[in-house]
Structures are given as C-alpha cells and as structure tokens.
Design a protein around this nucleic acid. Sequence first.
DNA 1: TACAAAGTATAGCCAAGGCTATATTTTGAC
DNA 2: GTCAAAATATAGCCTTGGCTATACTTTGTA
Lengths: 153, 153
Amino acid sequence: MNDTIRRKRDAGAEKLPAEGTQARRFGKTRTAQSTALLEDYVELIADLMASAGEARPTDIARRLGVSHATAVKTIARLKRAGLATARPYRGVFLTEKGQALADRVRVRHRLVVDVLTALGVPAESAEADAEGIEHYVSEVTLKAFAQFLRARG
Amino acid sequence: MNDTIRRKRDAGAEKLPAEGTQARRFGKTRTAQSTALLEDYVELIADLMASAGEARPTDIARRLGVSHATAVKTIARLKRAGLATARPYRGVFLTEKGQALADRVRVRHRLVVDVLTALGVPAESAEADAEGIEHYVSEVTLKAFAQFLRARG
DNA sequence: TACAAAGTATAGCCAAGGCTATATTTTGAC
DNA sequence: GTCAAAATATAGCCTTGGCTATACTTTGTA
C-alpha cells in the first residue's frame, strides 16, 4: 500500500549511537539471566542446609514455587556446572565452588537489600525486589553500594 | 553407603520460614524475566523510531546483539502481545499499548540510572547495570527512588 | 532496466526452564 | 517385617530465546 518507510533506507544510519557498546551490554544481561536461576538455587540450598541441616529437592521446589520435577532437573544442571553434588534419593550438597558462590550471593543480596532500605524502600519490597535485582549488580556497583552504606553510617 | 541424612526426614521442617511468601516472590521474578525481553525490544524500537525515523529488524538485531532471525521471531511475539505491528518487509511499529509501555520503561530506566549515579556508581556501570536491574524494580521501589532523588535535590 | 547487495523471512535445530503423569525408592508406622 | 505414604526420579511435552542455513523481497546502481 504505502511505502513511506524504506524510501531512503540508510538515512541517519551513521547517527545511531555505538551499537557495539549496547550490544555487548544487552548480551551481558542475557548471560546474567542464565546464571540467575543457578544462583537462586545455590543460595537456597545453602540456606536450607544451615536452617534444616539438609537440602531436599521437595523443599527446594516448594520454596521456589516450582514442581519437584523442575527442581530435580535444575539440580542436575547444578551438578553439571560443578556447583553441587547429589546421589539419587540422598539429598543435595554444595561443592566448594557452590559454597563459594552461595557466600558471594548472600553478601550481595544483603547489600542490595540494605541499599534499597536505606533509600526508603519498605522492607518487604526491598526483599522482594532484591531477589530480582541482585543478579544484575556488577562488582563496580557493588563496591559503590558498600561505600555508600559505610559513608552513611 | 551412608545414610546420615534422611534419618529423621521432617526434623526442623516446621521451623522453615513461610514458604508461601518466598515461593510467590520467586514466582514473580520468573514472570518478570519473560516480560523483560519484550520491554527491551519496545524500548529499543521507540528509541530507533525517535532517532532514525524507523525501526528495522536488522537494526534491532544489531543493537541487541542477536541474529536477525531471533529479532524477527521476537517481533512476532510483540505482535502476538499486542505491543507492535509489522508487515513483511515494512518495518516495525509500536501500537498504542506498546508506546505506553515504552514510555513507562524509559522513565523507569532513567530513574534507575539516576539513583545508581547518585549512589556513586560510575556512569558506564550505571547504564549497564540498569539494563538488567530496571526490569525488577517494583512500583513501590520506583516511588521510593523518585522520592530519594527529590529529597537529595 | 537488470541485477547484485542488503534486508527480510522461514525452517529446523538446540538448551533452558517450566509442566503433568508415571515409575521407583525410602521411611515410618503398624 | 510389611506396606502405605511420602519423597524422588524419569519421561514426554510445551514455550522461550537463541542459532545457522536457505529462500525471497526490496533497493540502489550500473
């Protein structure tokens, strides 16, 4: 029908901001998403081990709001990633690597929640939002957060 | 071999914190992930329309760092979601709904970047991290951010 | 005007992350 | 010691979001 668009297809093309930069940025975000779930699992497993003495697929599933089948499948991924060990019907355990990740995640989570709270976000929202936000906070930003909290006393 | 675990399988079970709450929290995070990508696309399309006068699959793909095929497929999803319209070989346009979403996303993005910057995060990191963070900031938190920036002048 | 290059679309593949339904194992109670 | 219930595992299916390879339009230029 009409072809108002497409007339001069490269008009303004060179005016676009550096695509490379943004592409890399988005790319990183995508990668972060794939690790976010594993981080959640590792965090939760460490939590369950500490509070209940063991981490069972059923508890993990319930806490994450997914089916046990899904939990089991993801635990298999954790094993493949070298973050956890598990033998059939015998519970899940974190490897050293998994424990290290859990520690890092826990610290980061705390920091994000504290910053949100310091900014005036209600505790409940801070906890809920941190669950999503924490996976996308870089080391640099994390340092700035810590600094901010320290300065603020 | 050993069965140290599993001995008393419900020990401490009732000591676990309210699973319902956390399950819902994680559940929300999952849902947010599925909309995050569409938000990115809508945001970018609006940006391209404004800066280049049109939004073409190839440009979208390049800016997002994905293949054109992936971009085309996701654009189809945008159409299904009622956020965009597109006819073969004729570019992508936002619907009213899509434009409204783009506006909301843009405002939110700005707010997140500004808050990060105010906290001392370097501009580049702030931009990069905001790309991931913004999708997980609730309305309540957004309000707190705005308030914080206002109070801080 | 014809044609090559650029852009666009489609098909078919893969892994992740979700589900339900169907085994199988373990456990605790009888 | 049996056996039912609970937990666990497996199989098969779906959607999303990525890819490459291949085919088809559009466009600008020779």
